[in-house]
Amino acid sequence: MNPLLGAEQAVLGSVLLDPGQLSHLDWLAPDHFYRPVHQALFAALRKLRDDGHPALAEESVPLSWVTDAVAEASTHVFRGLTAVYAHTLISACPRPAHAPVYGRMVLEGAIHRSITEHAIRLHQAARADALQGEVEGALHYADVLTGVLSDLAQRWGTEPRPVAPATPPATVPVTPPPVRAEQVAEDERFLLAVLAEQPKAMDEVVGWLRPGDFADPAHGQLYRCLGALHHRGEPIDRVTLLWEAQRRGLLADGTLSGDQLAAICDGVGPGSAEWLGELVMRSSVTRTAATSARTIRALSENEALTPGRLINHALHALGPLDEVRSRWQAVNGRPAPTPTAPTRSATGPPPAQVHAALARSAPRPASPSSARPGSAPSLAALRPPSRGHG
């Protein structure tokens, strides 16, 4: 059985067996369940509790608790939920008292799923912006993802902080969409030509444009050479630029060739380095956003990562985008928004949630029945001592 499916069934089964377990699951929401039928049933059980169902006041849980829950949930789902399936859920619950632990497993699955979904949205927005030469959509969904991570950290009871994974997930480098790749490369070549031919052009971009902003690594290395000449106060032209590239080994290792550099510098017309640099920055923002999104998606699909580590690794993966974004907004005269740390509850996570976390790692004494190989507990043994279906 899928572990997450088993956890969802166990949570619902525990509440069907013992309505009192709902008081330990107030931090769990219906949309934390993966299956729609489970979402509907958990919402129905909470509604019956809030409406004061008679089962809450009785020592023995009446059959109406199950039938009324199924009837209420059936108004929101059209298939998959029957009285037979409700009893299947009851059978899937080993111990009703373990409901908070099962619920925490459900929440863990929901955290992985939510981060995956928002990473996909960020990636889609970044690709759409790259096609249109925009950045606002990618930056908006990056803000949304950051807010989601902070909210999930609070729900899980951990402190959100960027932490680099011990082994970064393998992701394919992001390139501009094919219909834009040539235009991006042309913008980069034009910018480099302007910087090589206009002595004062570097002053317009050197404060905010970085070699890593170039999609073509060779163009980034050539910009690095320009920056070195500018930093040393040496003259910049095609001859000094070629010499600097040679000193850095770019000709020897094949990163650049003399013909490539000549092609970039030949035939350049008048142009604005600042305007061209902004075009390069636009491409850098969307490319970095797409890379961050793919890294976060790869992390979220790793089921071995605990939610706390997943959230912190995802925040770390957004770091490069935050850095590029701050430079982009600075050059456009807009201050970068100051991220607000999520407010932590003075009392910490819900006690039932803490108990569930501890229960997952605390050693348990062997049950007397486990001493007899092959023995299995009866259905009656799964119910709380003071409750049973009447």
Rank of each mutant, 00 (worst) to 15 (best):
E159L: 14
G212D: 14
A196S: 01
V206T: 10
P368Q: 10
G319S: 11
P217V: 01
L28K: 04
G227H: 07
S272N: 03
A262G: 07
H316G: 10
D26K: 11
L261R: 03
E58T: 09
G254F: 03
L192W: 00
P337F: 02
L261H: 06
I236V: 15
L145D: 05
L226I: 01
P365V: 09
T67A: 11
E234A: 15
R46L: 02
T171F: 02
V206D: 11
L226H: 00
H140L: 10
A10N: 03
S292F: 04
A119E: 11
V101T: 13
H38R: 04
A99C: 03
P337E: 02
Q124R: 13
E134I: 04
S300E: 01
R297D: 01
A119F: 06
H140D: 11
D187G: 06
A40Q: 11
P19D: 12
T67N: 06
A40S: 11
C93L: 12
W65C: 12
A125P: 08
A357C: 04
A181P: 01
G80I: 02
H32M: 15
A29S: 11
D266P: 00
D18R: 02
D213Q: 01
R309H: 13
L251M: 12
R238S: 15
V163F: 02
A228M: 09
A366P: 06
L149I: 07
A298P: 02
E8N: 03
D50I: 12
F33E: 04
T82F: 06
A218V: 04
L358T: 08
L318R: 11
V184P: 02
E59C: 07
L81N: 05
A381S: 14
P100K: 11
E117K: 09
L195C: 09
G249H: 14
A366D: 12
R327Y: 09
P165L: 01
A304I: 05
A92W: 09
V205N: 13
M202H: 08
D26L: 13
P168E: 00
I115R: 01
W156F: 11
S378T: 12
V174L: 03
D216W: 00
V239F: 07
H118Y: 05
P19Y: 12
R113G: 14
T171N: 05
E59S: 12
L358Q: 15
V15P: 04
C93K: 14
I90V: 15
I311E: 04
R364H: 10
G103L: 02
S367Q: 15
L256P: 01
V354W: 07
L241V: 00
S60C: 09
R282Y: 06
K200E: 12
R309A: 15
P373G: 08
V135T: 15
R161D: 07
Q39S: 04
P3N: 06
G13Q: 03
T295P: 01
G388D: 12
W243G: 15
S369N: 08
A29T: 11
T295N: 01
L28P: 05
A43R: 12
E234R: 08
V144E: 05
A362L: 09
A376S: 09
L122S: 12
E134C: 06
N302A: 06
T295M: 02
T167V: 05
E117W: 05
L131D: 10
P217H: 02
S386Y: 14
P30N: 05
P235D: 05
A381K: 08
H76W: 07
